[in-house]
Each structure stands twice: as C-alpha cells, then as structure tokens.
C-alpha cells in the first residue's frame, strides 16, 4: 500500500517536474494521451493472440494511439488474467480475453481473481462449436452418435484442447443432458488435439467451424441457432432435436475501477471496431464472427454462463 502510494506520488512529482509548463496542456488533452497496453493471456500465435492483435490494430486506429500487445501466458490463461486484475485501472491497460479463464477457471480452483475483478467493455467475437468426427467415422448425424454411445457406454472417446476449456465443458454439458458416457482425452491445445482426430486416434472433437471446413473433417452437428455459413450442409443440433448451443466467445475487458469517461471512451471505440468492415473481414479469415454485446450485456452474460458452469463443474466433480 505504502509502496503504491509512494510510487504514485513519485510518478506525479516527476511527471510534474519533467513536463513543467506543458503539464497543463497534457491534462487538457483527452484520453488516451499515450500508448495503451493490451494484455493477451495466451501465447503469441494462438487464436486468441491473432484475434487480439487484429483488435489492437483497429482499436489503435479508433483511439488514435498505439495499442501495444503483450502476451502473458500460462496456466490456461489465468496468469495473464491475474496480472490484468491487479493492473492500475487508468485506462492504459486493456485485455482481449476468451471466456474460459473468466467463466470456467475461477470455478475450477482458487485464483487471485474472479469474474468480478474486471470492468467489462464489450463482447467482440463468437464462433459456434461443431461436433467433428474422425475422417472414416460411421456417424452421419448426432442421433447416430447418441444411440451408439447409449448402447456402448464408455466406448467412444472425445478430445478437447485441455481440462476446463470451453469445448471441454460444452461437451460435458451435452453428455450430462443426454446422460451419456464418453472418455475424455485432453490435449494441450487444438493443434495436437485436431491432429489426433485427423489420425483417427479419438472419435469426436468439439471444434470451431473453420477447423472442420479447412481440414475437410466430417461433422455431425453445429451448436448454433442457425446453420453456419461455411458449413451450410451441416444441420444444427436444434434441427436434430437437441436444443443445445455452444460457442467460443470473448471480448475486451480492463481492470476494475475505470474512470467513467475512460470507460465510455473505450466502450465507444469498441463499438466502432465491432462495426467496422475491416474488422469483420479479418475475423472472418480467422474463422470467427463479430458478435457485439455492450458493456452491460457482456457482463450479464459472463455472470450467467459462470453460474451455469459452476453448477456443471460442481456436479461433475471437476473442481480441484
């Protein structure tokens, strides 16, 4: 505490000394006056990172400043999230995050943050999940999978990008609703996981639509309200009689306690980014879609999913 106060005082002092006469001028300028740091809690090069970088580029243009990306990886996103939570809420630290470290991880184990440690700015993206099968799979519809699994409990296996990830929990929820038993094989990320599916080492895999269309994998159902544009042949789960949705989603957040004018400025910029054609095109090439929710709706959705997943995690005994 003393440390922070001291640092804050020192910073103010020195800023004052250095800027001297121009200080008043700087104060008068509108936020942001210097580059904004964007933390991405996943390693460079992953889907989240590429998404984040595309967002940073657009956001920088709208805000009229540089948005510098820093990757802070580890612990399924939790290390980076913890850092964001304890950053200064001065509007110069923001983060693009997927939902899993917000709605799943805090329910799985004790973490130095929870869903309430952040100010929500806006949801930006969402891509529906698709249940893919191995290349020579006999299953053509979700029903066939369900029937087979019901007759042979524990015979089928499904892969996921890791324990506690969104696809893992989506699949567990499906199995819970349908009262099925499948073996869960966790991989470290979609790369190894999808490769194992392509090689036929696991039977099923929850992935985004792009993974399925680019790699020409067969699939049995899309967990979305309507059919996915890049897979028009694929029937949704609802059409097949199972009213279930699942997607990978996320958005822009900041440490809790932003000043109102900063939050308003960021929310406005976020809205502009989400509406821009360039952003839409870039996200499309990454296999995801723009899905905008404003600050309030985003926060409400996070709480809703977090509560639902907490129940599921509890029921399945996944918590550590």
């Amino acid at each position: 505490m003393i440390n922070t106060t001291f640092r804050f005082t020192a910073r103010t002092l020195i800023t004052g000394l250095v800027l001297g006469a121009t200080a008043a001028l700087v104060q008068a300028e509108t936020y942001p006056t210097r580059p904004v740091t964007m933390v991405i809690p996943f390693p460079a090069g992953g889907v989240t990172d590429t998404l984040g970088r595309a967002t940073a580029l657009q956001l920088g243009e709208v805000l009229g400043t540089n948005v510098v990306v820093t990757n802070k990886q580890g612990g399924a996103g939790t290390i980076g999230m913890a850092q964001i939570a304890k950053s200064r809420p001065d509007g110069y630290t923001v983060a693009v995050v997927p939902a899993a470290p917000l709605v799943n991880q805090p329910n799985l184990r004790r973490l130095p943050y929870d869903a309430d440690s952040f100010d929500y700015i806006c949801q930006l993206f969402s891509s529906p999940l698709v249940l893919a099968t191995k290349p020579d799979s006999p299953f053509k519809t979700l029903n066939e999978v369900v029937e087979y699994a019901r007759e042979n409990p524990g015979a089928l296996s499904y892969g996921s990008p890791g324990p506690g990830t969104l696809p893992h929990l989506a699949m567990e929820q499906l199995l819970d609703v349908l009262d099925l038993q499948l073996r869960h094989v966790p991989f470290t990320g979609d790369g190894p996981g999808v490769t194992a599916l392509m090689g036929g080492h696991v039977d099923l895999y929850m992935a985004t639509g792009t993974v399925v269309s680019d790699k020409e994998l067969p699939a049995v159902a899309a967990f979305a309200d309507s059919r996915i544009e890049r897979l028009p042949e694929l029937a949704t789960a609802t059409e097949q009689g199972y009213a279930l949705n699942a997607d990978l989603w996320g958005g822009l957040i900041a440490p809790k306690g932003l000043a109102d004018e900063h939050k308003a400025r960021l929310a406005e910029a976020c809205h502009t980014v989400a509406g821009s054609d360039a952003y839409r095109v870039q996200l499309k090439s990454l296999g995801t879609d723009v899905a905008y929710r404003d600050a309030e709706a985003f926060q409400a959705y996070v709480s809703k999913v977090s509560a639902a997943n907490a129940k599921l995690i509890d029921k399945l005994g996944l918590a550590q």
């Binding site: 640092r7 020192a10 910073r11 020195i14 800023t15 510098v68």
Partner: peptide, 9 residues
Amino acid sequence: LIPLRDWPF
C-alpha cells in the same frame, strides 16, 4: 518495440 523498464514507471 519491446518497452524495457524505465524509471519512473
């Protein structure tokens, strides 16, 4: 383009 720790922070 990697900022180093410069004082004051």
